[in-house]
Every structure is written in structure tokens, then in C-alpha cells.
């Protein structure tokens, strides 16, 4: 239990670091030095010291959005195992709660955006929900295939039971699930090719445009929630791709953390070598993720 708490604290503390690595990787490809690795920590510290400016057209939903979103992703993070180590909270069926907590986070972001009454934020909310409709089944079906493969109903059990032998036994299934989860990861975290986290063009934004009106500590909560979400969805892929258990918590933990860093570098590379998709083409990409998940599920059910 102490180890689980410790791991949870590490996640809470280390999550913003990954985005620093993504940005540094992108900077490398762009021939720049890039922002400091700890930039997001500085940003959070700065925002927390500021006061929030709240539009007169908004109601309580507007300030509730970031707080509720942070709470939801916080709870979801408690359910995510730290590599092969059990999560703080684990029970049969926790993966359903996990997926819906992420859904709840999105729900609050979206209604807070709609609350502003701005045309931009309405557009962003509409896009976010449209893509979520396709990203959620991909995530769900992928997790269902994993459940069928391992015979466990809890994220902690599923991921603890994954080994290299599982890959030998059901390689195609796991590869399909990993691919589906990677696409979901890119979509949910607003990365290229689905969204461009660095753009200043409101008309092209999805996630960023929904939070344009937030400022100060509210905005810090949003940035931090996004970093946590990046971590917990990333973990689902990392442990699936590198199911190595060394047998001792310390080397296991170090291996897991370095795999997370590798994932961040990979995301940075993806963002550097390709352009964004046309917005109308994003659903096609997400349908590919659904197809991968369904195929994995069928492979497991035959």
C-alpha cells in the first residue's frame, strides 16, 4: 500500500515532465534548443500565483469545469497501475469507471466551454464531442480485448499479468490494441495529427479553443489535468508494449519511468515528421482505431 501511494505521488509529480520531453524532441527536429524541460512546472507555478479573470457572461459551470475535470482525472489516475505495480485503487470492473472518469472530465470541459457563449468555444466543444464519440469505443473495445486475453477485469490485474509470453501467445491482438490505444492517445491528448497543441489559430483548434477563456489557477488546473491525462493514457500503451518484469519494485519502476520517457520522445517524433490531418479526416483515423480494437476483440473471441 505504501508503494502504491508512493507510485501515485510520483505520477502526480512527474506528469508535467513528459510534456517537457515532447517539446524538447520537437525543438530538436526544428533545429531549436527548445523550452526548458521543466517549463510546464514554471507555467503552473506562475498561473497559480495569478488571479483568474472570469467573463460576466458565464455562470458557476465555468469555474466548476476545471475543478471537476481535475478531480475526475485525479481519480482516474488512482486506478492506473504503475507499470506492473498495483494501483492505489483496484477492483473488478475498474476499467469501466476509468473510461467514464475520462468521459466526465471531457463533459465538464465541454459544458464550461459552452457556458462562455463564444462561437469559438462552441465550435471547439462540438469538435471535441464529435471525436470523443469515436475515440471512446476504440478505448473501450481495446480494453475489452485485453480483458478477454488476460482473463482479468481490473486494470491492475490486466497489466500485472502481461509478460513477453503474452506477446508470444497473442502478438497480433496486442499489436492491434497497442495501435488502437496509440491513436486514442493522440486524439485524447490533442496531439498532431489530430490537433496542434502549439497553434494560435482559433478556427483550427479543438481542445485549446475550449479553454481560451480560462485563466490563472483555473487554467493551471486545466494544464495539469491535461498532463495527468497524458500520463495515464500513456501508461496503458507503455506497459502493453514493454511488459517486462524484473522482479524487484525499484528496477521495475525505473524501467517503467524510462519507457514513459521513450513514449514522450516517440510522440515528439510523430509530431515533428507529419502535418495535421484535415479536420474532416480525423474521424477516419479514429474509425481505424475502432477497427483495430474490434479486430483484436474478434481474434480473442474465435
Amino acid at each position: 500500500m505504501i508503494a502504491a501511494w508512493l507510485n501515485f505521488l510520483i505520477v502526480l509529480f512527474a506528469a508535467p515532465f513528459l510534456l517537457g520531453i515532447v517539446n524538447r524532441t520537437k525543438a530538436f527536429f526544428a533545429g531549436r534548443r527548445g523550452p526548458p524541460l521543466l517549463q510546464l512546472y514554471y507555467d503552473l507555478a506562475k498561473l497559480l500565483r495569478k488571479s483568474a479573470v472570469i467573463s460576466r457572461t458565464t455562470g458557476f459551470i465555468f469555474w466548476l469545469g476545471p475543478v471537476a475535470g481535475l478531480a475526475a482525472v485525479f481519480c482516474a489516475a488512482m486506478m492506473v497501475p504503475f507499470g506492473n505495480a498495483r494501483a492505489l485503487v483496484a477492483f473488478n470492473g475498474d476499467l469501466i469507471l476509468f473510461a467514464y472518469l475520462l468521459g466526465l472530465m471531457r463533459f465538464f470541459t465541454v459544458i464550461a466551454a459552452l457556458d462562455t457563449g463564444s462561437a469559438f468555444e462552441g465550435m471547439g466543444a462540438s469538435r471535441e464531442v464529435q471525436f470523443a464519440v469515436l475515440a471512446e469505443p476504440a478505448l473501450f473495445l481495446g480494453l475489452a480485448a485485453l480483458t478477454l486475453q488476460t482473463g482479468h477485469f481490473s486494470l491492475s490485474d490486466i497489466y500485472a499479468s502481461l509478460t513477453w509470453e503474452t506477446w508470444g501467445k497473442a502478438g497480433p491482438t496486442l499489436a492491434l490494441i497497442a495501435a488502437a490505444l496509440l491513436i486514442v492517445f493522440l486524439a485524447e491528448n490533442c496531439r498532431v495529427p489530430v490537433d496542434d497543441p502549439k497553434t494560435h489559430l482559433e478556427l483550427t483548434m479543438i481542445h485549446e479553443v475550449m479553454v481560451l477563456d480560462h485563466s490563472g489557477p483555473d487554467f493551471a488546473a486545466i494544464l495539469y489535468s491535461a498532463a495527468l491525462k497524458f500520463w495515464i493514457l500513456g501508461m496503458l500503451i507503455v506497459r502493453l508494449a514493454v511488459p517486462v518484469t524484473l522482479g524487484h519494485p525499484l528496477p521495475d519502476g525505473i524501467l517503467f519511468l524510462s519507457s514513459m520517457v521513450v513514449l514522450a520522445v516517440l510522440i515528439g517524433i510523430i509530431e515533428s515528421v507529419m502535418a495535421r490531418l484535415r479536420l474532416t479526416k480525423v474521424p477516419q483515423l479514429l474509425i481505424v482505431a475502432i477497427a483495430f480494437s474490434i479486430l483484436a476483440l474478434i481474434l480473442e473471441m474465435r
Partner: peptide, 12 residues
Amino acid sequence: AGDVAYLPTASY
């Protein structure tokens, strides 16, 4: 290039 989030050309 920057508008379609294609990093290398945008930066160079």
C-alpha cells in the same frame, strides 16, 4: 507549413 503543424519547414 506552420499552419498545418509541419514543424521542420516551419522552423527552418
